[in-house]
Amino acid sequence: MLSKLRDEGVIKAWGLGVNRTEPIELTPALDGPKPDGFLLAGRYTLLDHERALQRLLPMAQAQEQGVGMVVSGPYSSGILAGGTHFEYQDAPPEVVERVGRIKAIADRNGVSIKAAALQFSLAHPVSAAVIPRATKPSRIAEDLAALHEQTPDRFWRELREARLVSPQAPLPSGI
């Protein structure tokens, strides 16, 4: 039905919004219509990107028409924006430790962790947009500033060397 509406020009595109990669991974095997894009919440972040990189994003790139991804939740429920929550609850110690390692590298390179989180989520060629979720209007200006913040190549290199970012992940500077 949605593809028919798209083909008739009633809608421009349709997609699937989920917080797990598996439902999107199943779409190529469907006999029926395929979505034009998808919204992936919390699964392409500095903290959680392995599964998306291994399965979902290569599939999306391989689609003939190209499938776009909107990344939602790039701050991993707030922990990558100075908060204490991950997956909408208090972050477990291993996540707090990992964020601390990312933040130490960010601080050493003069990069805000918010900028790193936003820019990482947008660096993949399939990423079309990001929804950072502002809790108050002033956060929108902060997010915009973070998006345009300069992040040196050495920052991304250090994250990769520390194994905090997958070697397969496209990085904002193209490293």
Rank of each mutant, 00 (worst) to 15 (best):
M1H: 14
L2C: 11
S3W: 07
S3E: 15
L5N: 01
L5R: 14
R6H: 04
R6I: 06
D7I: 08
E8Y: 03
E8R: 15
E8D: 15
G9M: 11
G9N: 10
V10T: 14
K12R: 15
G15Y: 06
L16C: 08
V18Q: 06
V18I: 15
R20N: 05
T21G: 07
P23W: 11
I24C: 13
I24L: 15
L26Y: 01
P28Q: 05
A29D: 05
L30E: 13
L30V: 02
D31L: 07
G32T: 11
P33S: 15
P33N: 13
P35Q: 13
D36N: 13
F38T: 04
F38K: 00
L40I: 10
L40A: 04
L47D: 10
D48V: 13
D48I: 05
E50P: 00
E50W: 03
R51I: 13
R51G: 02
A52V: 11
L53G: 12
L53W: 09
Q54D: 14
L56S: 13
L56R: 05
L56P: 00
L56H: 08
L57Q: 05
L57M: 12
M59N: 05
A60L: 14
A60Y: 08
Q61K: 12
Q63I: 03
Q63M: 09
G66H: 10
G68V: 07
G68N: 04
G68W: 04
G68C: 09
M69K: 02
M69R: 05
S72L: 14
S72F: 07
G73E: 10
S76D: 14
S77L: 04
S77K: 03
G78M: 03
L80D: 09
A81T: 03
A81C: 08
G82N: 01
G83A: 04
T84W: 04
H85M: 12
H85F: 07
Y88V: 03
Y88E: 02
Q89S: 15
D90L: 14
P92D: 12
P92A: 08
P92H: 09
P93L: 05
V96W: 04
V96N: 12
E97R: 13
E97N: 10
R98M: 02
R98L: 04
V99K: 04
G100V: 02
G100K: 11
R101P: 02
K103S: 14
K103N: 15
K103T: 15
K103W: 10
A104S: 13
A104G: 02
I105G: 09
A106L: 04
A106F: 03
A106N: 11
D107K: 08
R108P: 03
R108M: 14
S112R: 15
I113D: 03
K114I: 13
A115K: 07
A115T: 01
A115E: 01
A116I: 01
Q119A: 08
Q119D: 02
A123C: 03
A123F: 05
H124W: 09
P125D: 09
A129H: 05
A129P: 02
V130Y: 04
I131W: 03
P132Q: 10
T135W: 02
K136P: 01
K136R: 15
K136F: 00
P137T: 11
S138E: 14
S138M: 09
I140T: 07
A141S: 08
D143G: 07
A145M: 07
E149P: 00
T151Q: 09
P152E: 06
D153K: 14
W156P: 00
W156D: 08
L159G: 05
E161T: 11
A162N: 10
Q168H: 07
G174R: 05
G174A: 01
